[in-house]
Amino acid sequence: MLKTLKKYALIYKVFVKNCFIAQMEYRINFLFANTIEIAYLFIKLLYVMVAFRVGVVINGYTPDMMMMFVGSFTMMTGFYCLFFYSNFMNLSNHVRNGTLDLLITKPVSLQFIATLRNVDFGFSFTNVVAGAGMIIIAWSRMDIPVTPSRVLVFMLFIFLGIVLKYAIFLMPSLISFWTVQTAAVNQMSTAIWDMNHVPMHIYGSSVRHVGTFLFPVFVITNFPPLFVLDRLTWAHMVWFLIAPLLFLFLSRKLWNVAIRNYSSASS
């Protein structure tokens, strides 16, 4: 078990290095990827700005708290683009062009190489840095004590969020094994993800429950800051520990079903 993990860690390190070298070669693309993300960041900041300009407590959230939630959303978007986004988008290309054949022959797990092969630095850099910045600024403005336990659990929650994000958002991409074209599905899942532009408590209770339990997109970006603000209930905390495992299991099952539908396109 440990040996396998070590092997995969080593392979992943090679992937990261390889992607970094490849992307540094196309510096202009890297630059433009960043300008696009800065424009998106601007949109996220507008939501915070409106909260500050109105200057009232919105559904129990002060403008500083809003900034922390938007920061968490920004950072998670960054991590998603860094590790998963380009892989998930590529999946339908692999299915359409039959290039998955090549990956099947590799002596590693197919799901591993098909969904984690690319690491995208261009689209993620701005978001991770700006998101972390917003969280830190909000944290210090609210005078929340910086204790090791709080910081560690926060980081653990961010990690759990990344795992959960992988599990949830892989599933819509897997539809490509049946439909080949997934542009519309991907657009839809991005639109749902974007509902995290504002804290989950802004929404009505039915929308909130769907986003917490059925398709837990709110969990990913809301629970880490909720924990820092001491507003996370025990029940929610337990759910945050279970959900990544549960959805990872479900997405793995779906992967196994989906892969049976693969009919090598070219040969």
Partner: peptide, 13 residues
């Protein structure tokens, strides 16, 4: 979805 965000956001504000 953007309409939903805007609707709930302004309602809360």
């Amino acid at each position: 979805f953007p309409i939903l965000i805007q609707f709930f956001y302004w309602r809360a504000v």
